[in-house]
Design a protein around this nucleic acid. Structure first.
Lengths: 187, 187
DNA sequence: GTCTATAAGCAGATAGAC
DNA sequence: GTCTATCTGCTTATAGAC
């Protein structure tokens, strides 16, 4: 059987699914090999630094997707409410409606955490700041904007955890659906 | 050197710290052995079902502590606001001010997740329901009470994730400090 | 670029002495 | 109840053929 041609992004998506299902430690190279239908040696051919390099590449691609689906809409010009609604649509797609656990949670644990925390930390702070900028443009003072942006990030992460732990994606859906309105509420 | 006498709870606390630091997969029996200063064979003497049994016992103790520190205050009679404030104090102690990651997140991942999800799910639902009961006693209708209770659980879990990922315990502190007031707010 | 085969070491777990 | 020594299988990673 000839090798099926594949793009690097396809490989990274398959690796990401394996990491999301098993976590960093639980995703053995054997499992990653099965997930990509590629021999272990082939994986090491693509990622010279081994499993760590695979995780870093997966994280890089996730960052790019997050940027395209979530941050870019927020940085458009125009109606803040509309941008926040686009953000929730993007979040729903990025997290596949809450079915998928966040690499941020998985890679923040244990030895993987020591490796990737700076990158994860940067992503969170960037997300928070981007939301805060939108809220400021919507007329809120900077303190209120930052405080609400922090709550939004917390809500998204918490909803993912609770959704997964209870097996109820409705938790994530409910959290998303009230998010934009709450961010813009005049007290 | 004679063996230092130790209670089972001391052992479980040391095991819990190791699980919290490394996650279920990352906490190898060697690490658990180092954390307890007990030989591997001694650990297997105490926990006949091995690492899985250690995790289950740790989870059982965590559940008992959560019950004593968080749920019991909520189930007292009397002023709902006071009970919710006691809950936040209990949460702060249970999670050590946000320094400690939640076993619920760690054990919800990968193969450990498949083992412990029913237990974790029960704990979350019980927590949510207990908060909802307090809010109902405070005069809210059942739907509002349940919806706000769900938000509270989400906020606590999310704040833990974001605190750990950013290395800023202030996130958890801020989330806790506004929690009771927000739960009781009349819109 | 993919594969088979293999290396060296750590994983979870147990036997049996004290 | 704790220990040392050990077992088996899986781990990450590499060598070298095609």
């Amino acid at each position: 059987m000839p090798p099926i041609p594949r793009s690097r992004d396809d490989m990274l998506d398959q690796l990401a699914d394996a990491f999301r299902e098993h976590g960093f430690d639980g995703a053995s190279v054997s499992r990653l090999s099965a997930a990509t239908k590629l021999g272990k040696a082939s994986l090491y051919h693509h990622f010279k630094t081994g499993k760590e390099g695979m995780a870093a590449a997966v994280l890089g691609r996730a960052g790019a997707r997050f940027n395209a689906l979530v941050l870019s809409p927020l940085r458009q010009t125009g109606n803040p409410a509309r941008r926040l609604n686009l953000m929730t649509l993007g979040l729903n797609e990025f997290y596949r409606g809450g079915e998928v656990s966040c690499l941020l949670e998985l890679f923040g644990i244990g030895d993987a955490g020591r490796l990737f925390r700076p990158q994860l930390r940067g992503a969170i702070l960037r997300f928070r700041q981007t939301i805060a900028d939108v809220l400021e443009q919507a007329g809120f003072d900077r303190d209120t904007a930052e405080s609400r942006a922090e709550e939004a990030v917390i809500t998204i992460q918490g909803a993912l955890v609770v959704s997964r732990a209870t097996g109820d994606r409705g938790v994530f859906q409910r959290a998303l659906s009230s998010l934009a309105e709450r961010l813009l509420a005049r007290v």
